[in-house]
């Protein structure tokens, strides 16, 4: 039973590291129009052509799949272990809401990931949907894809609002992952709890404001 949680923790942590890199890169979108377009497109091309990134990308897809599959198994089995529910349960007095609802938060994130991949990955890499043009330097104009997407208010809302469950998931998930993997130093855990909170806030707010700023560009 332990290996399942260990897989969720390792893949979750890997995804957490990925989010830092991903947010840093997306921060390019906040530069003024011309700089942002050139930088973002050449960065994107560099990534697409790098073999290392290719391997990392496959690790990423695998991580998401393993994380979701094992999380679903663990959640299902845990529910089976607690079939009968209390008539009165004041669980909010003993634990955080996020920790009680990781599965629900995960499903919301999964919906996000699927839509996100359809919006970008499918168009740029698989060539599905509307054709993506080239910029002045001959790089695929991923900036344009982002720009047009975030001028649709519904997508802006979707991308921003779903960063709320992401924040809650990360706040509980990150500190939980350390404990799952056997980090048990008490003072260290208190520090990790704070780091997880700060990390979750930066990630959720960071990802959430980018579409909004691009919308008003």
């Amino acid at each position: 039973m332990f290996y399942r949680k260990n897989i969720i923790a390792v893949t979750g942590m890997f995804l957490c590291v990925f989010l830092i890199v991903h947010l840093s890169a997306n921060a390019i979108l906040l530069f003024p129009e011309t700089t942002a377009r050139t930088l973002y497109n050449s960065y994107s091309t560099t990534l697409r052509e790098s073999i290392v990134i290719k391997i990392v990308a496959y690790l990423l897809y695998l991580s998401i799949i393993f994380h979701v599959v094992y999380a679903a198994i663990v959640t299902y089995k845990n529910r089976r272990s607690k079939k009968d529910k209390y008539i009165m349960n004041h669980k909010h007095e003993t634990s955080s809401w996020a920790s009680q609802n990781m599965g629900l938060l995960g499903v919301l994130i999964l919906i996000f990931i699927v839509v996100h991949l359809v919006n970008f990955w499918a168009r740029v890499k698989l060539g599905i949907g509307e054709k993506v043009g080239l910029d002045a330097y001959g790089n695929i104009d991923v900036y344009e894809v982002t720009y047009s997407l975030f001028h649709n208010i519904y997508y802006v809302l979707f991308y921003s609002v779903l960063m709320i469950p992401l924040g809650f998931h990360l706040h509980h998930g990150l500190q939980s992952a350390f404990k799952t993997l056997g980090f048990y130093h008490k003072k260290g855990l208190a520090v990790l709890a704070k780091i997880s909170l700060i990390y979750a806030i930066i990630m959720s707010i960071g990802f959430a404001i980018i579409p909004v700023i691009v919308y008003f560009k």
């Binding site: 399942r4 845990n78 007095e93 003993t94 634990s95 920790s99 799952t180 980090f183 048990y184 855990l189």
Partner: peptide, 25 residues
């Protein structure tokens, strides 16, 4: 048929002996 720990930490609040979830870690 006990479930897997997901560190909700409810146990350490209720535990009469005040055992910390760091014990689980």
């Amino acid at each position: 048929n006990f479930g897997s720990c997901t560190f909700t930490a409810a146990c350490e609040v209720e535990c009469p002996a005040g055992i910390s979830i760091s014990s689980i870690a």
